[in-house]
Design a protein around this nucleic acid. Sequence first.
DNA 1: CTGTGTGGTTGACTTGGATCAAGCTTACGT
DNA 2: ACGTAAGCTTGATCCAAGTCAACCACACAG
Lengths: 247, 247
Amino acid sequence: MPPEKSTQEITLAVIQTACSNCNLRELCLPLGLSEEELDRLDDLVSTRRRVKRGEYLYRAGGEFDAIYAIRSGFFKTDVLLEDGREQVTGFQMAGELLGLDGISTEHHTCNAIALEDSEICAIPFSQLESMSREIHTLQHHFHKVMSREIVRDHGVMMLLGTMRAEERLAAFLLNLSQRFTARGYSHADFFLRMTREEIGSYLGLKLETVSRAFSRFQEEGHIAVQQKHIRILNVAGLKALMNHQPI
Amino acid sequence: MPPEKSTQEITLAVIQTACSNCNLRELCLPLGLSEEELDRLDDLVSTRRRVKRGEYLYRAGGEFDAIYAIRSGFFKTDVLLEDGREQVTGFQMAGELLGLDGISTEHHTCNAIALEDSEICAIPFSQLESMSREIHTLQHHFHKVMSREIVRDHGVMMLLGTMRAEERLAAFLLNLSQRFTARGYSHADFFLRMTREEIGSYLGLKLETVSRAFSRFQEEGHIAVQQKHIRILNVAGLKALMNHQPI
DNA sequence: CTGTGTGGTTGACTTGGATCAAGCTTACGT
DNA sequence: ACGTAAGCTTGATCCAAGTCAACCACACAG
């Protein structure tokens, strides 16, 4: 009977999109919450949205009123200079938060663009603040997430400020690999969601340099590359590359 | 009468070091708090400490339990790679907060070193969290401060990732100038607290490159440099330098 | 299956900033 | 007043990564 089926589908959809049933809850904002606290968070995370590949989740200058948790998919954030130069400030995957930059001025300061068809949960910020005044664990975890973002940024500065091209790319691959692992995917076999140009922008390199470094890693047997398909053959080799050369 | 004088001195000292009487309160954590809320914050900010030039306020790996507000002086934060490479991640002046990186893992992830004799206020973090559960304004302002740090970091990434040497240095000088202005100092005449090497580390350049860029700016009449003494003669000129050349 | 466009690779060459080296300036301890 | 060390400047040279250019590999629309 069609009506029943339809009802069931709706119910299933609701269950699936609740934090309490989300398989990312150990990576995402709900980390460490009790069952009861989780239920309250479910009420807060009201809006889910699909963002198609290439679409903007938000734009620099746009008004800020929510942060976003990625349910599935892959994003980049970037900042544009008036003259058109782009700096990719990060790549975000499922379980990670987007939009923390907007709290400061109540306007977003960067663009968030889906690199593949994605799904996000919108978390109204003022409600998150009021709930985190009541749930200590949530407050503390949110602070940790913001702090982790600062630490990550310092890592990128280190990368850009002191490392040479091959070190940067090795660090980038190892970081991706580690994040895929945390999500239950292979640490050694994955597809890049971003172009060479986007990697280059993130790493402060030109796309040709990224391409050459990939080729070099392949020649040396550290990885196998076929367009966006990466297989890591020698983790230790990549790690050695990273700590190798003083600039 | 000596005893009275001494009493008066002590009283004065206490008043001076309270947030409610600190002339940095419009730049620092107390921003936007009511008189009554400010009094409560005073209780929280219990410890003041002097940090001499060259001393560490905290070290990477050390336990985190407080964030620090700078009352006076000047700091740098840096991250060290095993092989000794240093990345300066920021320079901090009066009214700015230090230690936000430590929230994430409950251990500091960078070093904070005084570049001149300084005074700091220690703010025990768990107490800050509990107070910000009660004082909405404090909570919101603290979130803004953390977010601002993330935005600042994105700016540094832009600098390191897409700008050439002279653009980086121009951006650096304009940023310093603007922060000195906010503190009531001259925007156009100041002393650098850091060495060329530290500037270089922050900007991803070698000290010789920094020195040459200073000389070039002087030749072109944008600034006057004499060792650490900088006078900005042509703000517009520096701004023009910043947006000028695609890499 | 074929044309077209986007993205990736590779080569030749150029260049901005690093490296190496020498000399200068300033601050400070004796 | 002088010696020493730390920090800064400047020049000569080198090299990693950028630039320019040609070509290749898919993906996908018709």
